[in-house]
Simulated scan of single mutants.
Amino acid sequence: MRRRIPVLATGVVLVAVGIMISLGFWQLRRLHEKEALLAHYAAARGLAAEIAWTAKGVDENQLYRRARLTCSAVTGHSSIAGRSRAGDLGMAQTADCTLPDGVTARVVLGWSRQPNAAAHWRGGEVRGIIAPGPRLVADPALGGLEANAIPDPSEIPNNHLSYAVQWFLFAATALVIYALALMKRGPSAS
Rank of each mutant, 00 (worst) to 15 (best):
A81V: 12
A43C: 04
E50C: 07
T98S: 11
R2Q: 14
Y64C: 00
T70V: 15
D59M: 08
W121V: 03
T75D: 11
L28V: 05
A44T: 13
I80Q: 14
G128K: 00
L28A: 04
A164H: 02
G128Y: 00
S188D: 10
A164S: 15
T173N: 05
P134A: 04
H120F: 09
E125P: 07
A39E: 14
A81S: 15
A92G: 06
A81E: 15
Y178I: 03
A119Y: 05
K184F: 07
I51D: 02
R83F: 12
V107Y: 04
A44P: 02
R127Y: 06
E146Q: 15
A95K: 00
H77M: 03
R2P: 14
R83W: 10
L31Q: 13
G110C: 05
R4M: 12
L182S: 08
A52R: 09
E125H: 10
E50W: 02
S79Y: 15
S162N: 12
A67D: 07
E33P: 04
N116T: 04
G128I: 00
F170A: 02
H32S: 13
I177G: 05
V17Y: 02
S154V: 01
I80L: 13
I80P: 00
P153R: 01
F168C: 09
R106S: 05
R30C: 01
G124A: 03
L99G: 08
R29G: 15
L69S: 05
S154G: 07
K184A: 08
V7D: 07
A174V: 05
A42N: 11
G90T: 06
V7P: 01
L145R: 02
W167S: 02
A171K: 04
K184R: 10
A138H: 07
S78K: 15
R29M: 14
A81P: 15
A44V: 04
A118E: 01
G46S: 12
A171V: 07
I156G: 03
D96I: 09
T75H: 10
G123K: 05
V17N: 02
V7R: 14
L142R: 06
A16I: 08
A9P: 10
G82D: 12
V17W: 01
L136E: 03
Y64V: 01
K34Y: 02
N61G: 13
G11V: 00
P187S: 10
L145V: 03
D139A: 15
R113C: 06
A179T: 09
I129E: 03
G144M: 03
I130T: 11
I80G: 06
A16Y: 08
V103I: 09
N61P: 05
T173S: 14
A44Y: 00
Y178G: 01
S162C: 00
A164I: 04
